[in-house]
Design a protein around this nucleic acid. Structure first.
Lengths: 249, 249
DNA sequence: GAACCAGTACTGGTCAGACCACAGAATACA
DNA sequence: TGTATTCTGTGGTCTGACCAGTACTGGTTC
């Protein structure tokens, strides 16, 4: 096998295993060439392979960077079949929460199991930001906290699936924000659940992390079901604020 | 945009538009360089990009050729990022099985809870077909059985997600069939697990169905992990050269 | 005639060193 | 202080050379 392919393979595995995190800068071509004892040409060819499959992005004059696992293609795509379904049938919200319960539980489990120190640092950063922000005004930190955990799972399939559901999740999160957060005791409970998820992941307790994350989603789902049964119409219209995923779950 | 990227883009469009047929040979690097008025280096970089995304294959001493598989139209999409990942990194198989464990468990749970008589009829049909087929020759019945259960969950989100993973799922099922079924005791265990899933769903026992389905996927995953550790352990350790790639000091 | 073998003319793979274009920080100047 | 200017580091491109496989060609040998 050609050297350039070996190098591209090594780099890709390094990225998958978390040795190089998304958005992180890759050593310069000249550095890599020197360090690996090959010419700069083969380094460039290896990087172009990774570029071709979207693993890295290269910016002239700045360097090469690991591509975000979550592609920036958030065209809301209101024409997608699932979106249309959601518009017409409120029950889809609970269907999604059912799926999320499983996937987020697994994500928390894997994160607690596999997170590198860099991952833990990022999660901590996202969590502290989440704590210091009023979830009603800005759901962005919540989204980051959630995303940090998913990325720390180091499971590209999981990342891919959750990313495919991102837009739908956005709607459910906005629903939960609109319905749950205004209620003081709900907000406190959710905040406490976030804290427990964070602690379980940091303490590297996979089973606990899964259990807590799942019960968290379940809690939100049940709460909203309760609200719906009371007759209060569930608010489903998105805020016009920044995108958010996760202010609970 | 860099010249190499323009060239790779032009070449890919040429291939997609049928200007270059599958298996057909691409002009040599030196010819392309001369014809396009650029250096051979940029040609090589462009080709490596296409190679990275599986559009072409390059053989030393022979030339570069348009890759064979090309139903790029819809479902099959062997060029999707996840597919490419799967090709290059066997680990992705276990990543997918991790996700499947959760989703199929949930699917079985919901199917046992919500299946209509029509659903149950379909599941029965798929199950009997699965029983009567030699699993060694065809993985399809296996996949169909699982799919019937998923559809009986009546959760469109779940169906959508698993459908998006259909091709990857087929690969895992095939992998399990190819690796596990040849072994008598494995085949029997798996067959028994299928039976128990079937019975749990038919008896409308959600919790049992979930538990059994999850342990089924887990069993397959563990078994294949065991096989891999016996037979392919060495291949997993590709390059332990003296040089390391990560960010240094 | 058939089998073998070296020569040759391709192909891609790697290397070295040079120069250009861009981005950003440090510096000098007004 | 604030704005040019320079400097340094990055990726982008070029050149020409050599190495390494592949396949065809033509001659030698049996």
């Amino acid at each position: 096998m050609a050297i350039s392919q070996e190098i591209s393979y090594r780099l890709e595995r390094l990225i998958l295993d978390g040795g190089l995190a998304p958005e992180q800068k890759i050593p310069s071509e000249r550095q890599l060439a020197t360090r690996l004892g090959v010419s700069r040409a083969v380094i460039r060819e290896a990087l172009h392979e990774l570029q071709g499959r979207g693993v890295i992005e290269t910016r002239h004059g700045k360097g090469s960077f690991v591509a975000s696992m979550f592609p920036r293609t958030d065209d809301l795509d209101p024409q997608s079949p699932l979106m249309l379904l959601f518009e017409g049938h409120p029950r889809t919200l609970f269907d999604l929460l059912e799926v999320r319960e499983q996937l987020e539980g697994q994500a928390a489990y894997l994160a607690a199991k596999r997170a590198t120190t860099l991952d833990l640092h990022r999660i901590t950063k996202a969590y502290t930001a989440l704590e210091q922000t009023d979830p009603l005004t800005n759901a962005r930190p919540d989204h980051n906290f959630h995303q940090a955990i998913v990325e720390a799972s180091h499971n590209p399939v999981l990342v891919h699936v959750l990313n495919g559901l991102k837009n739908l999740m956005l709607l459910t999160v906005q629903a939960s924000v609109a319905n749950l957060n205004p209620r003081e005791e709900m907000r406190n409970k959710i905040s406490r659940q976030h804290k427990r998820i964070y602690q379980a992941v940091m303490a590297k307790k996979p089973e606990a992390a899964r259990r807590i994350a799942m019960s968290h989603v379940r809690f939100v789902s049940d709460a909203m079901r309760g609200i719906e049964q009371q007759g209060t119409a569930i608010i489903r219209e998105p805020f016009n604020g920044p995108a958010s995923i996760g202010t609970s779950p």
